[in-house]
Computed example of a mutant assay.
Amino acid sequence: MTIRPFHLPHDLDTMNALVMQGFEYPENPEWSIRADEKESMLDRVQGAKRMWPLLRFLRFFSPIFKDIMRGFIAEKDGKPVGLINFMRQRDEPEWNIANVTVLPSHRRRGLARQLVAAVLDDLRARKARTAILDVVDKNLPALRLYQEMGFEIFTGSLEADLEAGAAIPDPTLPAGWTLAPRSRFDWQSGFELAKRITPKNVARYEPPVEARFRFPPIRPLIGSLFMKLGGDDSKRYVLRAPDGTIAGIAWYSCRTKQGGMNSAGFDLDPAHPELAQFMLAHAISTIQAASPGRRIEFNFSDWQPALFQAAEAFGVKKRFGSHRMGLKFQ
């Protein structure tokens, strides 16, 4: 067995193939990658390949682009059988680990442990401060592996779906409240909200400090181009109270190409749970109008239960829960 570094852009197709095969769980089908997810992922991989000349140039000027996607690939007799990716968060020494994937035919041989160990060794050499990953809460073998390697659970989330269906009417906000489009260059709104509402257990690994939110102006432009080439359009909103206080933010991804899926995420001040229903209604009606006939995938933080409770009223169904785990190097 050989474990080698992940190389851009040559390994994008390899990554795509491994994820599509490796994220299949016949015994737990709700964990498996769905057909529309595969369609979206394929378009995004093709978009990334088209953007590579620009990204290669930008890597000389910013750690964000230099470390946009690193990783390792495990090979058996020259054939890829496992994958892991990791990416820097902003310019901070904080890293996200993703796509921990082993083909079903090569599981239970310690390969995932070798891949994670390779990443942790690499991050130590880079003087990383923290590493964060997500794992399905009922995937006990993976959970035990990460705990044995030093990760601890610090929060969680719910993945949920709304299948394509009848449109819902636009919601009406209480008097004085506003929900307005948010500029792609606006990092301050998310920072202001996070400072007020981030729980202590989450702040231990994802502290609401300015450096984690501020980004160079070119980053949202590159992100917008990547989404366009990948067949998606992003929409962002900010919810304000009558006194101007930011009470919530929302972000939607709407498909512009054939096939694929839509998605949405939210942050809402827990002091205003009564507005969760409005935020969900706005998300569903906006996405359905922009990209009808497709499933909408939602991600809800477990410390914001009002959002999922509101979603259930619109027919959103839980798919699975996840633990968010962190490891500190320093």
Rank of each mutant, 00 (worst) to 15 (best):
Q114K: 15
R113F: 01
E163G: 13
I222M: 12
N139I: 05
L42N: 14
F191G: 09
A283W: 05
K257A: 15
V316A: 08
F57D: 01
P9Q: 07
S291H: 10
A306N: 11
A160E: 02
I197C: 02
D137L: 06
E94P: 00
N85G: 06
P220G: 12
P181Y: 03
Q309N: 15
K79N: 05
A74M: 04
A125K: 12
I249V: 15
E159D: 09
S105G: 04
M15W: 04
A194D: 05
M325F: 05
F266C: 08
I132W: 01
A164G: 12
L193S: 09
I73V: 13
L307T: 10
Q21S: 14
A35C: 01
G231M: 03
P26T: 07
S32D: 02
N299F: 10
N262Y: 11
V238D: 03
P305D: 07
W177T: 04
M69I: 03
P292C: 13
Q288G: 13
A164W: 08
R219D: 06
V100F: 08
R44H: 13
P63F: 08
Q258D: 15
K76G: 00
S62T: 11
L162G: 08
D67F: 14
V100E: 03
L55H: 06
V209D: 01
P181A: 02
A175V: 07
V100C: 13
I153R: 15
G78T: 01
L221N: 01
R196G: 09
A264R: 07
E163H: 12
K317W: 04
S285N: 07
E75Y: 04
D13A: 12
V136G: 00
D43F: 12
I296P: 15
G190W: 00
S183Y: 02
E297F: 12
R109V: 03
R295G: 12
R34H: 10
E75W: 01
M149P: 13
W177H: 05
A211Y: 01
E30I: 10
D186W: 04
I33S: 13
T14Q: 02
I64E: 04
E192I: 08
V135P: 09
G47Y: 03
A167D: 13
N96G: 14
P29A: 04
T14I: 13
S234F: 09
Q21R: 15
D91H: 15
G260L: 09
M261L: 14
L179Y: 08
Q304M: 14
